[in-house]
Amino acid sequence: MKLSFLEPLYKQSGPFASVYPDTSRDSAIEDPDAAVRLRWRHLRDALMSKGADRDSITAVAGTVGSDADVPGTHGQAVFIAHGHLALLDELPAPPARDTAHFGTLPDTMPLIVQHAPGIPYLAVHVHYGGRHSTDAPGTVRIEAEAGTWPLTKVTPGHRLDEEIPVADWPRAAGEVGRELEGHARRIDVETVVVAGDVWARGILIHRLPASLRGQVTTVEGAGESEPGRALLEQRLESLFQGRMAAHDRALLDAFLAERGRDGTFAEGLAPAVSALQRGRVKALFLNDHPESPFRLWAGPEPGQLALAEQELRSYGIREVTEEQAGTALARALVGSRAELVVVPEQELCLSEGVGVLLRYADPTTRE
C-alpha cells in the first residue's frame, strides 16, 4: 500500500490532535446525533487531559460528526494542527474504540490500517426479471461502480447506471463492456464482481473485453444497494474478507522469498527501526495490533527514530519525544516513501508483528 495520501499531512508542523470517533448513522442507533455528541464529550476530555490547546479542541468540535450524509456504520479520522484542519478522512468501519491523541506527531496508523486491503475492483449489478429472450418486453438495467475496497463503502467510486431495452441488450452489452473497461483501466482493477440475473449477466460477461473477462467473479443474491454505500457491499465484504491486494501479495511473496534465502529482509522491531533509520526499507509488513505496547523515540526528521532515547541524543538530536511505535513507524514510512502491507496474523505471524523488505542488502539490520 502506497502512503502518498499522507504526505500533505506530514508537511505540516505539530503538535497534532488526532481523533478517531465512531460517527455511524445506522438504523440500530435511535438518535445517532446524540450518540456522536456524547462520544465527542469523552474525546474532548481526553484531549484536554493530554494538554491540547483550546483552538485545536474547538477545531475538532466543529469537525466530529460533520459526515451526517454518510449512511451506515463508519467513523472519522480527524487531524488538527494549530487550530486548523490538517486532514479529514472517512473510516469504512467504526474504530474499535474512540481515541484521542495530542502530540508532536499525528497518530495515523489506525487510518492506514483502515485503508487495507486496498483492492481495486469493479462491481456490476445486472437488473432483469423478465423472460430469457431478446423478444421479451422491458429493459435491462446496469449498475456499475469502480472503486477501492474498503474505502468505497464511505467514499463511492465512479458510477454507471443505464437502462437498455431487452431487444437491444446483446448488441448494447458490448458497448457497456467497453465503457466498463475504460473505468477499470483508470484504477488498474484486479477483479470484476458481477451479480444479477443469470441470463442477462451472462450476455454481458461474454461480451466483455478479454482484459476484463478473465477477472470476473459472479456472486448471487446481491439485493439492493443502500444509497451512499458501495454497490454490492455485502457481497464484496464476504468476497474480500481476509484477502490481500495483488500488489501487496506480490510484495509479501518477495519478502518470503528473501527470508527463505536469508536475503534482503529483516524481522522484528529493532531490525526494522535500524533499516528505516538508513532509508533502506522498500516495504514494511505489519500484523495489526491496535493495542501494541511497543514505544519508540523520535526526533524532528522521519528517519530519526530509535528504541532508546539515548541513541538519538548521541547523534546530537535535542528535540526527542516518546511515541507509540505505530506513530513513529508511519512517519518514517511516509518520509522514505516506503510501502506498508497489513498482513493477517493467521497468514503470517511476524516477530513482534513487524517485518521489512529491504531495497538492498544491509546485514546490520538483522539480528
Rank of each mutant, 00 (worst) to 15 (best):
residue 104 T to P: 07
residue 85 L to W: 06
residue 95 P to A: 11
residue 116 A to Q: 07
residue 101 H to N: 09
residue 79 F to A: 02
residue 77 A to C: 01
residue 130 G to V: 02
residue 88 L to T: 12
residue 112 I to M: 09
residue 102 F to N: 01
residue 86 A to Y: 04
residue 92 P to E: 09
residue 95 P to T: 11
residue 111 L to M: 13
residue 102 F to I: 02
residue 97 R to F: 13
residue 109 M to A: 14
residue 91 L to E: 04
residue 129 G to Y: 12
residue 102 F to C: 03
residue 79 F to S: 03
residue 88 L to S: 12
residue 114 Q to G: 06
residue 100 A to D: 00
residue 100 A to G: 01
residue 122 L to P: 01
residue 125 H to D: 15
residue 81 A to L: 05
residue 119 I to T: 02
residue 124 V to W: 12
residue 80 I to H: 05
residue 100 A to F: 01
residue 99 T to C: 05
residue 116 A to M: 05
residue 95 P to S: 13
residue 79 F to K: 02
residue 88 L to H: 15
residue 80 I to P: 10
residue 80 I to S: 07
residue 121 Y to P: 07
residue 93 A to L: 14
residue 83 G to C: 09
residue 98 D to G: 06
residue 91 L to M: 10
residue 99 T to Q: 12
residue 108 T to F: 09
residue 95 P to Y: 10
residue 78 V to Q: 02
residue 105 L to T: 01
residue 96 A to E: 15
residue 120 P to M: 00
residue 87 L to G: 08
residue 120 P to C: 00
residue 120 P to W: 01
residue 119 I to R: 00
residue 98 D to I: 03
residue 104 T to S: 14
residue 89 D to W: 08
residue 114 Q to T: 12
residue 110 P to M: 05
residue 114 Q to E: 14
residue 100 A to K: 00
residue 92 P to Y: 07
residue 98 D to K: 01
residue 130 G to Y: 03
residue 119 I to L: 03
residue 122 L to A: 03
residue 96 A to D: 15
residue 112 I to N: 06
residue 97 R to N: 10
residue 125 H to V: 09
residue 119 I to N: 00
residue 87 L to H: 15
residue 114 Q to H: 14
residue 87 L to D: 13
residue 93 A to P: 06
residue 109 M to T: 10
residue 85 L to E: 10
residue 85 L to S: 07
residue 124 V to Q: 07
residue 114 Q to K: 13
residue 114 Q to M: 13
residue 127 H to P: 07
residue 97 R to P: 06
residue 124 V to E: 05
residue 112 I to W: 01
residue 97 R to I: 10
residue 77 A to M: 02
residue 84 H to I: 09
residue 113 V to I: 13
residue 113 V to L: 09
residue 119 I to G: 00
residue 91 L to T: 05
residue 108 T to S: 14
residue 82 H to N: 15
residue 118 G to S: 06
residue 91 L to F: 03
residue 127 H to R: 15
residue 106 P to F: 00
residue 115 H to L: 11
residue 102 F to E: 02
residue 109 M to R: 10
residue 125 H to W: 13
residue 97 R to Q: 15
residue 111 L to S: 12
residue 98 D to S: 10
residue 102 F to K: 04
residue 110 P to Y: 03
residue 112 I to A: 10
residue 108 T to K: 07
residue 108 T to V: 15
residue 80 I to G: 09
residue 129 G to F: 11
residue 86 A to E: 06
residue 129 G to I: 08
residue 116 A to L: 06
residue 105 L to S: 04
residue 100 A to I: 01
residue 102 F to R: 05
residue 119 I to C: 00
residue 121 Y to M: 14
residue 96 A to T: 13
residue 84 H to R: 15
residue 129 G to R: 11
residue 97 R to D: 11
residue 92 P to K: 12
residue 90 E to G: 10
residue 110 P to I: 06
residue 122 L to W: 02
residue 102 F to A: 02
residue 110 P to H: 04
residue 90 E to V: 08
residue 96 A to P: 08
residue 104 T to W: 08
residue 118 G to L: 01
residue 81 A to M: 07
residue 129 G to H: 13
residue 126 V to Y: 02
residue 83 G to Y: 13
residue 98 D to Y: 00
residue 95 P to C: 08
residue 102 F to G: 02
residue 87 L to K: 14
residue 115 H to E: 10
residue 83 G to T: 08
residue 98 D to R: 03
residue 91 L to K: 05
residue 127 H to Q: 14
residue 122 L to H: 01
residue 84 H to C: 08
residue 111 L to F: 14
residue 109 M to P: 04
